[in-house]
């Protein structure tokens, strides 16, 4: 990703400006042979402080922007960084293959697993091929096909969630987008192998949930998970898409808020400045969470796992 020019997000600008200046000074000191170590170190400290401060005070809508960052690592990046011998499986065996969801078998530190995830692109061309990570019914049916194979062979299932939502298109409706998602929810609720879901970027509504009914649902620190996009919510409830900030605030879509509501099970920390600035560290942190999960669940029997999974979702909701 280093070769791609990064366009900073609005709130990142003061940080990148400072780092640019540091780079300038470093070049200058090298070329002119002047010792500026103390100045440079002071500036580095300042940059660090600034970055920490900015990232501690992010508004929900700014976190939404990070979660959608074009250079944010996606499923393929994590597969490459965390798993070995990935064997991709394509197609739903009924209609087509959907490049917006990828999946297959792999090894995580020598252990068999199935990995399934939404896939966006890091550039426009790839994004168009992947339909911006918005699956058609075939994507959900392929995911289910892989999950059933995983169940057959006794492999735990790991899903990585990163989608604006299921695709609202003509063909998608014709071929039963709703049925495909509903079927996945039903089948995942009783899939007889351990299942872990990690929201790595955008958890966009039913399109995200369609592969995220799992024993443990975790979120990366700057991922979001919501019933509706803040823009759409703003335009429906406030009748103004520009009210997305207010909507993002009201929807409580950030990882800390959702953990407080007990709608997710944990948060995976991101490297300083967000996962898009350091794919490797983000992957390592995810790896640790997978490790903990596999260790905990390999000891449990299937009936116990299924009963707990049912009760986990059975108990979600607030009423009197």
């Amino acid at each position: 990703m280093a070769e791609k020019k990064k366009i900073p997000l609005e709130f990142e600008k003061p940080i990148t400006e400072l780092y640019d200046k540091i780079a300038e000074l470093e070049t200058l000191s090298r070329e002119q042979n002047i010792d500026m170590t103390s100045e440079i170190n002071a500036m580095k400290n300042r940059a660090l402080e600034l970055e920490t401060k900015i990232f501690q005070n992010l508004l929900p809508m700014q976190i939404v922007q990070i979660s959608r960052h074009q250079l944010r690592p996606g499923t393929l990046d994590y597969i490459q960084l965390l798993f070995t011998d990935f064997v991709e499986l394509k197609g739903d065996r009924v209609f087509a293959d959907d490049p917006a969801i990828i999946g297959g078998f792999a090894f995580y530190q020598g252990q068999n697993v199935a990995v399934i995830g939404h896939q966006k692109g890091h550039d426009t061309k790839e994004n168009i091929r992947r339909n911006f990570g918005m699956p058609n019914p075939e994507g959900y049916r392929k995911a289910l096909r892989i999950m059933r194979l995983a169940a057959k062979f006794g492999f735990p299932v790991i899903t990585l969630v990163d989608t604006p939502g299921a695709y609202p298109g003509l063909g998608a409706e014709e071929r039963g987008q709703a049925e495909a998602i509903a079927r996945n929810l039903q089948e995942m609720s009783r899939l007889p192998v351990p299942a872990l879901s990690i929201v790595t970027g955008e958890g966009g509504s039913g399109g995200a949930l369609g592969i995220a009914v799992a024993d443990k649902v975790l979120m990366l620190e700057y991922a979001v998970y919501s019933v509706i996009s803040p823009e759409a919510c703003g335009s429906i409830l406030w009748r103004d898409a520009a009210q997305s900030e207010a909507a993002a605030q009201a929807l409580k879509l950030t990882a800390p808020d959702l953990l407080k509501l007990k709608l997710i099970d944990g948060i995976i920390p991101e490297p300083r400045g967000g996962a898009h600035n350091n794919h490797e560290t983000a992957a390592q942190n995810i790896g640790q969470a997978i490790d903990v999960f596999l260790r905990e669940y390999s000891r449990q029997n299937t009936d116990e796992i299924l009963a707990k999974r049912y009760n986990k979702f059975r108990n979600m909701g607030f009423f009197k």
């Binding site: 609720s189 039913g206 009914v213 919501s226 019933v227 409580k252 509501l261 909701g317």
Partner: peptide
């Protein structure tokens, strides 16, 4: 009801 409403999909499907 935010994400809790989305989770009703999983709850009812289960």
């Amino acid at each position: 009801e935010g994400l809790a409403s989305l989770m009703q999909m999983a709850k009812t499907a289960a």
